[in-house]
Amino acid sequence: MFHLPLTSLRAQFDDIDIYLFDQLLKGRIQKGIHLLDAGCGAGRNITYMMQAGVQVYGADISAEAIEKTRELASELAPTLPARNFVVADLDALPFAEDKFDVVLCSAVLHFARSEEHFKGIVQELWRVLKPGGMLFARFSTTIGLEGKLQQVEGRFYRMSHGPVWFLADEELIAELEKSLGAERLEPLKTVLVEQDRTMTTWVVKKAPSRY
């Protein structure tokens, strides 16, 4: 009987977000769909998608990161055009409205430059998402650490490791859901990391078109 080596997992999945892996297990990401990784970095969350026949796109503000993702795609999925991967600020994506079945945005939103920038990114991710499509976002929040963080101004907080991050709270997330008409596919899931930050997973669906 042939067994795959456990070491092959890293080659298949790279450093995929474990909560995104959960969406794969639930069948919400399928071969042939159009998927955007917004803030893709060097492609850690889309390595498996490329190999699985997903029509992957990526956007990142770093030209160096996009070059690495294009190199990864050329190796794992040579039929994916290099133009699928673009340098862009996430609040101004160069993609058509209603283009993607799934939009990912993992470990990015807490780097927003202002509350308006944060909302602008979310609205832009929503714009390019097809009716009936899924938005998966994971970002640092104040949930579970209310009153325990060093507030700088507004929703900006100094993190224990030094940088200042924009941290949404449950109220802001609920406000966005209402304004977008989003339907939660999962309850909010928040993980406490070493008592100094939390990471919240937000998975929502865009209402299907009525026409």
Score class of each variant (00 low, 15 high):
F85S: 02
A77M: 03
F95V: 06
R113P: 04
E124S: 00
H117R: 05
L80R: 03
L80D: 07
P131N: 02
Q123T: 14
D91G: 06
S114W: 00
D91I: 06
F118H: 15
Q150M: 13
L80Q: 06
V103Y: 00
D101W: 01
V122G: 08
L109V: 01
A137D: 02
T79S: 15
Q150E: 15
E115A: 12
V86E: 11
D91N: 14
T69W: 02
A96K: 15
A77L: 03
G120Y: 00
M134N: 07
L125C: 05
L76V: 13
A92R: 15
V103H: 00
R127E: 03
L129M: 11
T79Q: 15
L129N: 05
K68F: 08
K119P: 03
D98I: 05
L93N: 04
T79I: 12
E71I: 10
I143S: 04
K68G: 10
A92Y: 09
L129T: 04
D98C: 06
V86N: 12
E67R: 06
K99V: 15
D89E: 15
V86F: 13
A92P: 06
T141W: 06
A107W: 15
T142A: 09
E67G: 14
H110T: 09
Q151M: 09
E124H: 00
L135N: 09
W126H: 03
L93M: 01
L93Q: 02
E124A: 00
K148S: 08
G147C: 12
F95A: 06
G144S: 12
L104S: 07
W126C: 07
K68Q: 12
I143K: 08
V103C: 02
L72A: 08
V108W: 01
E116A: 11
A112M: 06
F118S: 14
F100L: 07
F136V: 02
T142F: 11
T142Y: 14
V87P: 10
L90N: 12
F111T: 05
F118K: 15
V86D: 07
